[in-house]
Amino acid sequence: MAILEIRHLSKSFGQHQVLKDIDFTVNPGDVTSIIGASGSGKSTLLRCINLLETPSSGEILYHGKNVAGRGINAPEYRSHVGMVFQSFNLFNNMTVLENCMVGQIKVLKRSKEEARQNALLYLDKVGMAPYINAKPRQISGGQKQRVAIARALAMNPEMLLFDEPTSALDPEMVGEVLTVMQQLAKEGMTMLVVTHEMAFAKDVSNHVVYMADGVICEQGTPEALFGNPQKQETKDFLSRFNKL
């Protein structure tokens, strides 16, 4: 059964319609990449899925239950669906370790020791275990993003959303974050990734969604979408990337 089904999702900011009639499905273990030009609505879609933006209409079915409607416990839903941001959003008033513990303690009501062990497990996984005593301002962008991934993983979520996780990073730091993400994909984590990294979309994901002007223009396997795009817009977009 699908984890997430998006049905006829639309979002408007005032008169401006950013998302129009979005439909797609995420199955367990899927690594879905959402690609498209800036301003095509990719990030808004991801933010709607995590209810950071309220969809104007349509349904977001999480295990068959519509979470976009009224009377939904949004905080609890979010604790099952982790999110990694472009700008990291680590808590500046806490150390690396505390960043990964606070959600477990306050939201999941785990004991301090349990939270610590679990946090260390994931910090070790992303290679940040030596830095547990550092504050976010003392580590580099790539390191911050790896901590942010560990923070999301420490909640033991069912799926992870990535909102352009490497776009704010210097080129030499992109690799370390992508390596971690690739590792997660290999281990079967369900992931939904908004990205400009075409290599990641092509090689790591098993489903690619191309968005343009607030609609899903084309979607399919990476082989089909990159190898044999059907629509002219997709071809144009991909050829621009191939030239780079």
């Binding site: 995590n50 839903y77 941001f85 959003n89 008033n93 959600g103 306050k106 939201v107 942010a148």
Partner: peptide, 27 residues
Amino acid sequence: VDPGQTEGAKAIGMTHVQTMVNVILPQ
């Protein structure tokens, strides 16, 4: 306080009160 801090806290499932007490007010 950077709105990203609120979003980060919301994204791991904190309620408004938890976000305020643990993340926003200390900063």
